[in-house]
Design a protein around this nucleic acid. Structure first.
Length: 438
RNA sequence: GUGGAUGUAGCUCAGCGGUAGAGUCCCAGAAUGUGGAUCUGGUCGUCGCGGGUUCGAACCCCGUCAUCCACCCCA
């Protein structure tokens, strides 16, 4: 009988325990941050009707979406982000909910695009949005949640880049080139990647050399955030709601003490065309080339595809897999704990009752542990513990049984401590464990 | 989707037309007798997959799959 070659699809991955433990630890920390900021969880189906996800049809996304006909002949598609399903969700359930509504949604999404490091066909997004409020307070809440969530992950220094599409569009309008805003936005977005000269060249092609100079002057404004803001205000033709909104967000960030992580950046525009107000992109300072690890913005008409009700919203999404790829590239070790804490060595068949009782006592005390299931050579049992990153071994062989002691061995330092009773062992272990976790 | 690079033992890689290699890991054994040193022996490869050229291919050619890089787009 022939064997089927085991393999996974391009851009799809298996996760071994070491990776999955890291992923779940990061998800836990993100969830914790979202909850602290007042967001509640929801979930939606992986599959939606194709028309729901594709809407009026958007060139690029349409090419990337996984689509097929189900067994009932329905045209269906796999979600490629969590925002569009959320818009459908709001249109369907607005009457059962309340506004403003703040939700987080951590789930896999699928895009059939070409792969690269940190770019996969199946990946996890961690979305958080607030809908039903178009205020500086709600914009700020998302920025603050980005800051809280990423800070909670203890990742290297990051910068949240902030911009407002309205200001840029006013500037384009004043130059009479608002009709080409989409192309100009896409080009401007590449400034930090392709450099000043190439950007100028492309902008000149879209407009003319003189306008390209002006565009570059706008997106290359330098200085602290307030200086940049005043420069943008001037070039856009004066104060308006958009500049006031940015100023309010900057003030709130300052009051909250994280203005050093927030940068007003006129070259950040976001390719997605549904953004209507503030936009954000977040980069790890030491690894900008991996791309944005958390992006989002304000979209005031998103649910309009599915309802006549006007539901403004603002939100962002952490790209967990891209973030992990960056952490790997930077060789950042994220400490994780909470998995098996102790291996009870199996040294003597006749002592199995002792081992099982020990495991029960530890488990009752909330300590994760396991009994090695075979009386194999002790070296093998140690090797097993090491591979599984189990920090402690509990040793009780013939000698220890005669002396009626339990030995707790720290597998890292290789020091052993004797205990005269199981209770003493469990108690000591619990204390050690608390110290490790604190 | 377009262009380029890569794909050899579990891992890191060498070999680049003539009988598959090294280090590491793993397994068994010696000594330790609650393991990081040392010694002895050993297992493991459809050379990504399929086809072609050749007396003969891991090595050349074509296709295909996957990974990485650039473009595109984006988390």
């Amino acid at each position: 009988m022939s064997i089927i070659e085991p393999r996974v699809l391009k851009g799809f991955r298996d996760f071994l325990p070491e990776q999955e433990i890291l992923r779940s630890a990061l998800i836990e920390k993100l969830t914790d941050a979202f909850k602290r900021c007042g967001f509640v969880p929801i979930d939606t189906p992986v599959l939606e009707y194709e028309e729901i996800l594709l809407g009026k049809g958007g060139g690029e996304t349409e090419k990337q979406v996984y689509r097929f006909t189900d067994h009932g002949g329905r045209a269906v598609a796999m979600r490629f982000d969590l925002t569009v399903p959320f818009a459908r969700f709001m249109a369907l359930h607005a009457h059962e909910l309340y506004l403003p509504f703040k939700r987080y949604h951590i789930a896999k999404v699928w895009r059939g695009e070409n792969t690269q490091r940190g770019r996969y066909r199946e990946f996890m997004q961690c979305d958080f949005d607030m809908v039903g409020s178009d205020t500086a307070a709600s914009d700020f809440e998302i920025v603050y949640t980005i800051y809280t969530a990423l800070s909670n992950l203890a990742i290297p220094a990051f910068t949240i880049n902030l911009n407002h599409r309205g200001i840029f569009n006013r500037f384009l309008a004043s130059q009479g080139i608002l009709d080409r805003s989409v192309e100009i936005l896409r080009t401007v977005d590449k400034l930090e990647k392709i450099g000043r000269d190439a950007t100028h060249e492309q902008l000149a092609e879209l407009t003319n050399p003189a306008l390209a100079d002006k565009l570059l002057a706008f997106i290359e404004l330098k200085g602290d955030n307030l200086t940049i803001l005043s420069g943008m205000t001037q070039l856009a033709g004066g104060e308006a709601d958009d500049t006031k909104r940015i100023r309010a967000i900057l003030d709130l960030a300052q009051a909250s003490g994280f203005e050093q992580s927030l940068r007003l950046n006129p070259s950040i525009t976001r390719g997605l065309d549904y953004y209507t107000g503030v936009v954000f992109e977040t980069f790890i300072n030491a690894m900008p080339e991996i791309g944005s690890i958390c992006s989002g913005g304000r979209y005031n008409d998103l649910a309009s595809l599915y309802t006549k009700q006007h539901i403004p919203g603002v939100g962002a999404s952490v790209g967990l897999d891209r973030l992990i790829a960056a952490l790997e590239a930077l060789e950042v070790k994220v400490p994780v704990s909470g998995y098996c804490q102790a291996l009870i060595l199996n040294l003597d068949d006749t002592l199995l009752t002792d081992y099982v009782c020990c495991a029960k006592s530890l488990r009752d005390a909330g300590i994760a542990c396991e009994v090695y299931p075979e009386t194999k050579k002790i070296q093998l049992q140690f090797t097993y513990a090491e591979k599984k990153a189990i920090p402690f071994a509990i040793i009780r062989g013939e000698t220890e049984h005669e002396k009626n002691i339990w030995v707790l061995k720290n597998l890292d330092t290789r020091n052993s401590v004797d205990y005269t009773s199981l209770e003493a062992l469990v108690q000591a272990f619990a204390q050690t464990n608390m110290q490790r976790n604190s």
